[in-house]
Simulated scan of single mutants.
Amino acid sequence: MNLLSKLSDHELINSFNAGNVNAFETLVLRHKEKLYTSIFFLVKDKYLAEDIFQDVFIRIIDTIKSGRYTEEGKFLPWAMRIAHNLCVDYFRKVKRTPTIKNSDDQDIFEVLNFTEESAEDKMIKKQSHNRVRDMLDQLPEDQREVIILRHYADMSFKEIAHITNCSINTALGRMRYGLINLRKMMVAKQISL
């Protein structure tokens, strides 16, 4: 397995195509954190993020096995594009789904708590992490998306522009305004991280 970790993404994909399942496992482990974190910050639900993450790799396997993979040397941006599209598809589907409202005009599924938080989840939720997430949620969607892709997925502005279908200058502008808005929120709430 150690030898596989030294291979490039392209070499791992070729090895996987040749029948080496461990090569694909190495590829998944290499990019798991960036992909999952980006999905999680877009959908804001741990279980949904896990489902979408799995769907991303199912699509990747299907594409590679069918011989349609052509993104040589650009595996992560390609995988991020698939993840982004699956998140967008999810939100489109949710918009078409009717909501059931209670007497206070709240979606009943947002009011009900179906799961009990585990000890692991409680440990993960540190105070500063929650503050940043709350502030990110208050940003306009386009600004939030660029900040998440840049800081959590560690993507270049060129990759972000490609994924979000905008120019590099637009992505840079969204990042700038998003950071300005975050600073304003921090000053207003007297938060220091």
Rank of each mutant, 00 (worst) to 15 (best):
M155P: 11
G173K: 08
H162V: 05
L172V: 11
D154I: 01
V187H: 09
N181A: 04
N165A: 12
R174D: 04
E141K: 04
V187I: 15
V146N: 08
R174G: 10
S192F: 09
R174P: 14
A188T: 14
A188S: 13
N181L: 03
P140W: 06
A188P: 03
Q190W: 05
R174C: 10
M185C: 08
L172P: 02
I160T: 12
M186E: 10
Q190P: 07
Q143V: 08
D154A: 13
R176L: 11
T164Q: 15
L182I: 09
G173M: 06
A171F: 02
N165K: 09
Q138A: 07
A161Q: 11
S192T: 03
A171N: 04
T164I: 00
Y177V: 05
R176W: 09
L182S: 01
Y177F: 11
A188G: 02
L149H: 14
Q138W: 08
Y177H: 07
R183H: 10
A161H: 05
T170G: 02
K184A: 08
H151L: 11
G178E: 10
D142T: 07
L149S: 11
S167T: 15
Y177L: 08
R176H: 14
E159D: 15
K184H: 10
Q190T: 13
S192G: 10
I147K: 03
Q143R: 04
G173V: 09
L172K: 15
H162E: 15
R176C: 02
I180F: 12
H151S: 15
C166T: 13
K158M: 08
R176M: 09
A188Y: 07
V187T: 12
I160Y: 05
H162C: 00
D154G: 00
K184C: 02
I160N: 14
R176A: 07
I180K: 14
A171V: 00
K184Q: 13
Y152W: 14
K184Y: 00
Q190A: 13
Y177S: 05
C166F: 05
V146D: 02
E159K: 05
A171Y: 02
S156H: 03
G178W: 03
F157M: 03
T170I: 09
G173C: 11
D154W: 03
E141M: 07
L182M: 13
M155H: 12
N181H: 04
I191Y: 02
E159Y: 07
F157G: 07
Y177M: 06
N169W: 04
A161E: 01
R183N: 05
I168F: 00
L179A: 09
A171D: 01
A188C: 02
Q138K: 09
M185H: 04
S192R: 03
A188Q: 13
S192L: 11
I148W: 04
Y152E: 15
A161L: 00
L139R: 06
M155V: 12
K158F: 12
Q190K: 14
S167P: 02
I147R: 00
F157V: 00
Q190C: 12
H151I: 07
L179G: 08
I163D: 14
I160D: 01
E141A: 07
I191P: 06
H162Y: 11
F157T: 02
R144T: 03
S167E: 05
Q143C: 12
R150W: 10
R150N: 13
M186G: 12
Q190L: 06
